[in-house]
Simulated assay, not measured.
Amino acid sequence: MPHTRLDLDRIRAARQVIHPQFLDTPLYECDALGHRLGCTMSVKLETANPVRSFKGRGTELVASRLIAQGRAAVVCASAGNLGQALGWSGRRRGLDVTVVASRWAPAAKLDRIRALGAELELVEGDFETARERAASIAQRRGVRLVEDSLDIETCEGAATIGLELASGAPSFDAVLIALGGGAMATGVGHVLKTLLPAVEVICVQPLGAPAMTRSWHERRVVTTESTDTIADGVAGRYPIPVVLDDLLEVADDAVLVQEASIIAGMRMFLEHAGLVVEPSAALGVAAVLEDRDRFAGRHVVTIVCGGNVDLDAYHRWVRT
């Protein structure tokens, strides 16, 4: 059993707290996609919920525990999806939610955060700038700061995906997981390495945002000065040390993929699966495209982690 901050009993109990709309999302073999990729490809569809990403699994745990503690407000930094999910979970429970995001985040994500009733503050700069501002707000107001991947609820909420994969059929050989801060990778990885240790856990990150992948390979925190990728949801620059420790326990590999492969993956999801996905959700397919021999003839699961994308940008990408 991997030695991480996560606990399998808590993960199982989390299913009783998370709203059913986020649980038991579709898992199915996509023959058309697999045929084009040269492998058996199954899709775990984490966009089939009210916030169109996996993040609601974690924010449901966060919000429920805040209410149990008698707290009334919460703040987070977000590239877009966490803010939407926290807004949804907070509104359902009467929490005041503040989200700090880069003004350069996709407009569709920012609009949805506002629509869910959260207070949205925009900063000049990237996600790391937003994280610093959110921490300042939390300290000044004396409210809970939710830090994705650092806060165990976000990891153990995402880990419930792993429970569903482990109980699904048929069996599979590898899972491809988008890697950003690490909540989904450590969560799903912990469950699979506990219940299905033979399954290969492969994390995928853009070449233009490689901090966590480089850190995994060097077994130490490696930061970057900037990021350059359309996959905004995974574009962090400062890996969290304890999250890296967890990732080192559960990931078999971490790979980097090019932007052209991410775009090709988005196009393939549209053409062969009828799915509109955001760039981060196409990382798994991008990894197969760049290393077909590795996955040839194998049964691979890719987690479609989000579907929140600006349509204008999406049309530009898939038409190129």
Rank of each mutant, 00 (worst) to 15 (best):
I303K: 08
W317V: 02
L311P: 01
G233S: 10
L207T: 09
H299F: 03
G162A: 07
T129E: 15
T40H: 12
C30P: 00
P241K: 14
Q69R: 13
M1K: 12
R292G: 05
A107I: 08
G187A: 03
H315S: 09
V255C: 10
D126M: 11
R114N: 12
L86Q: 01
G34P: 05
A134F: 06
G284N: 14
L270C: 08
P26A: 11
V143L: 03
L248P: 04
G70A: 03
G265T: 03
V123T: 09
L66N: 12
L179Y: 01
T223Q: 09
P170A: 04
E164A: 13
I152Q: 07
V43L: 14
R219G: 09
V146N: 00
T59G: 05
A48T: 08
G181A: 08
T154N: 03
I177Q: 07
I240D: 10
A251D: 03
V288W: 05
E225T: 08
A169W: 10
A174E: 09
I67F: 06
E60R: 07
L207A: 10
E128L: 04
R91H: 13
T194S: 08
V234T: 06
D232A: 10
E278C: 07
G157Y: 04
G162S: 05
A264M: 01
Q139L: 13
A138D: 10
S42H: 12
G168N: 03
T59W: 00
R219T: 04
G56D: 01
W104L: 11
R219D: 06
T129N: 15
E156T: 10
L6K: 04
R93K: 05
K193I: 04
S280W: 02
I18D: 02
I152R: 15
H315M: 15
D24A: 13
H190C: 09
D126W: 05
I152H: 03
L6E: 12
A115R: 00
A286I: 06
R141I: 01
N49D: 09
T98S: 00
Q139D: 09
A135T: 11
A273Y: 02
P210D: 08
E29D: 05
L311A: 13
T227H: 01
V243F: 05
L8K: 08
A235T: 03
A68K: 15
E156M: 15
Q84P: 00
D312H: 10
I11F: 06
N308R: 07
